[in-house]
Design a protein around this nucleic acid. Sequence first.
DNA 1: CTCCAAATAGGTCGCCCGGCTCATACAGCC
DNA 2: GGCTGTATGAGCCGGGCGACCTATTTGGAG
Lengths: 214, 214
Amino acid sequence: MSQPIRVVIADDHVLVLDGLRQALDALPDIQVVAVATTGNELASVLERVRPDVILVDIEMPGRTGLSVLRDLEDPPPALVVTMHTEDEYRERAVAAGAVGFLSKATPLPELAAAVRAANDGVVLLDVDDLESALAPYREARLSPGAESLTARERELLALLAGGISGTDELAEEMFISQKTVKNHLASIYEKLGISDRAQAVVEAIRLGLDRPQS
Amino acid sequence: MSQPIRVVIADDHVLVLDGLRQALDALPDIQVVAVATTGNELASVLERVRPDVILVDIEMPGRTGLSVLRDLEDPPPALVVTMHTEDEYRERAVAAGAVGFLSKATPLPELAAAVRAANDGVVLLDVDDLESALAPYREARLSPGAESLTARERELLALLAGGISGTDELAEEMFISQKTVKNHLASIYEKLGISDRAQAVVEAIRLGLDRPQS
DNA sequence: CTCCAAATAGGTCGCCCGGCTCATACAGCC
DNA sequence: GGCTGTATGAGCCGGGCGACCTATTTGGAG
C-alpha cells in the first residue's frame, strides 16, 4: 500500500470524465493514469497500462464498457459507474465480472472508498451491508512520500502550507520552542530530500498535507 | 473582471456535481459558490446567493432545472448542461431562458470558456459559429490577486512553486543576476502582502500560477 | 515627445534560516 | 530490561535572505 492506487476511468461524457479525473487525482492515495471515452479506446489503453482499478461507464459509443471487461484476461477489479440503477444493468455488470456497481449519484467520498476497497480485493457486490464494508476505506490514506513523516512533522508541514512560515509563529502554533521547530524542519528536509521552507511548502501541498483528511 | 466568476451548479448526479465543482474551482478565475442536487434546492440556493452564472442539468428529482429557471425574475445567465443532445431539449432550454446549451460530452476547457462568455453577456445560442465565439474566452484568466503582478514576477513565482527556491538557481533559470531576482521577490512580497519565499509558494499555488495556462 | 512602469543591476546591513552535534524524557516493543 | 523511535530542547556558526536605497535602459502609453 505504499504506492498510490493506479486508476483508469472510462466514460463517454468528457465533462464527467474530466471532473472525476480531477477529483480523484486530488486525493493523495489515488492516481488517474489514463482515461478513455470509448470502449475501443479503453481496450487499447488497457493493453498499454495495467491499472489497479478500472472505473467504467456502461454506455459508450461503439463498444460498451462491459463488453471490454468481458474480453479481458486477468482483469483488474472493475467498478461500474452508471446513471442507471435498474437491476437489469446491475446483473449485466455482474455478468461482465465487475466487483462493484455504483450510481453516478454516489457521493465522491463513497466512490473513493469503493476504489480503495476494490484495490484491496473486496468484492462489493457480495456484501449486503455496503456501508460497513466501506467503513475501513473511508478516509484518504497518506500519500506514499508522507509515510515516513511523523505526526508532528506533518502538522508542521500543514501549518507551513497554510502560510505560517516564521520559526517563532510555528513554535507558538505548536506550543513548542523555536529550537524544536527547527529540529522538526531539519528532519523533514532530510526525509523529503529538500533544503528549505519554500520547497517544504511545495511538497506539503503535493502530498496533500495542506488539507487534513479531505 | 477583477473578481472571480461566481458559479452555482445544479445536477442530481452527485459524482458529476463534485467532479465539476472541483474542476471549475481549480481554475483561478472561476469560483463555485454553491451546488444543488434538486430543483427545489437550487431554487432555495438562488434565494440566498446571486451567482454570476448558473450551470444546470435538466433532469432532476422533484423539479427540473428549467422550471426553476423560468420562475426566476432577473435571472443570471444560465448554461444548460445535459446528456441529451436532441433538439427538443435544446428548444425547451431556450424557452426557459438559457443562454447556452452544452452536452456533457463537452470538454472541460470548452465549458470553462462558455462560463466566461456567459458571464460577459454573450448569448451562445444566438451565434452560429460557437468555436469562434468562444475563442476569446478559451484561456483561463489570471486570478484577481495575480493581476497586479508583472509577467516576470509571475515567471518567478512559477519557478518557486516548482521547487526552485535558491536565489542563484532562480537567477540562472531566468537569465538574470541574483540581485534582480531579489528585487522581483521584494516587489512580489509587497504586492501580495507576504514576506518570504515559503509564503510566496503558498500564494503562487493558490493563484494558479504553478501551472501556466491550464 | 514625454513620462512612467518594468526589467535590469548594484550595495549594505542585520537577522533568521539551515547544517551539525548533543542531550533528555517517554513510549512501545521484543 | 534494553533497544528504538519520537518529541522535546539547546548551542554554534556561516551564509543566505529580506529590507532599504539608488541607478540605468527600454518600451509603451499618452
